[in-house]
Amino acid sequence: MYSQTVMEHFNNPRHAGVIDNPDGTGEVGNPTCGDMMTFYIKVKDDRIEDVKFQTFGCVAAIAVSDIVSEMAIGKTLAEAQKITKKVVAEALGGLPPNKMHCSNLGADALALAIQNYQEKTEPPQADQKAKKRINES
């Protein structure tokens, strides 16, 4: 049912976890559809330094989360934003058709985390918290 790559990422996810004080977070999914993912990113000089994820979901959802994290680390924000569902599925050696959309949410969660980071660093109306974080970095 699942490719060997999917099973490897599912059995040994290397990027599962939480980043304390992340630079951006992105949350997708809902329990009704089955899968929920939270992505945490650490950004330095416009480049993704680290990614961690937390995922409630099936084998595909967990494997997707892990490979998206792996693909994003080291990429610039612009490069990371180009990671699509199609690219993710290909990197995993394919996904069962019925899992293509419902479990393949990693790229969306990552995009939201990047968006969250960008809103914090370039806020239309800069709030105190975001300013403080910019100063710290």
């Binding site: 976890g17 949350e27 993912m37 937390q54 967990i62």
Partner: peptide
């Protein structure tokens, strides 16, 4: 559960 946002 170690990486479940729901359990967390």
């Amino acid at each position: 559960r170690a990486f479940s946002p729901v359990w967390r």
